[in-house]
Design a protein around this nucleic acid. Structure first.
Lengths: 129, 129
DNA sequence: CAGCATCCTTGTCGATACTG
DNA sequence: CAGTATCGACAAGGATGCTG
């Protein structure tokens, strides 16, 4: 059934909501962004993505594996080596997410400028120091 | 300065992180997804996006306005009418986000199937009932 | 190396009530 | 209609320590 089942992400009980909630996540975007380039080992991801804890990395990878987006490959070396890579399904998503990262990096200047303008007018009430 | 300042979203203190954190948000994706089609009024958005509370909608819209992605237009009718629309900057992002929603709606079947397979093998330990 | 288990601190969000 | 204010519940996330 490649047909359009007309899922609707705007309906609260729609399963797409769950998926959207998962992929619309800062860490997921960054992780899949890296996996889109090449396979990575656990600790390599951890070092690459600053501010990410093992706990969250572990959780997120497990979820992504369960969702069929990431493949976990264990090499029976000593000590054990584990490699994470994209599945074909994950590959179709990684492109969209990479474009998000690119957007952020390309438009951060404009966003920062907009924030300054906004804070100048609406005299700072709730902004972080 | 259209040049590449080499921002890096993988550095924890990089401002792009903040932006990424904001746009990689379920509600932001859904909201900008709608605004990409046409302008919307506050309560219309609220009704359209099931499960979204006024508080979160209000917060999110304010942030998006501050980031220069959304324009808030007040019409001096009685009672006052407020319309939310995309700025040009927001427009460049809305396309990427719309593709995320589309991905979710198109691939939800594959994800659901993967979850079943996974849960069958790794005997359910942490899944929600 | 690649994790899991635990504690405990945040903040995020939903529900409710009130204002211009 | 378009919000703001307050409260309380819940869960995500960081820090730490331990395992195969």
């Amino acid at each position: 059934m490649p047909a359009a089942p007309s899922w609707n992400a705007y309906a609260s009980e729609c399963p797409t909501r769950m998926v959207l909630d998962r992929i619309a996540d800062k860490w997921t975007v960054l992780i899949l962004g890296l996996l889109g380039q090449q396979p990575w080992r656990f600790n390599a991801l951890l070092r690459k993505i600053e501010g990410l804890s093992q706990k969250v990395l572990s959780q997120t990878l497990k979820r992504l594996e369960r969702d069929g987006l990431v493949r976990r490959t264990v090499f029976p070396t000593a000590p054990v080596t584990v490699e994470y890579s994209l599945t074909p399904l994950g590959g179709t998503l990684a492109d969209s997410l990479a474009s998000l990262i690119r957007w952020a990096e390309e438009n951060i200047d404009a966003v920062l400028a907009a924030q300054h303008r906004f804070d100048g007018q609406h005299d700072a009430g709730d902004r972080p120091a």
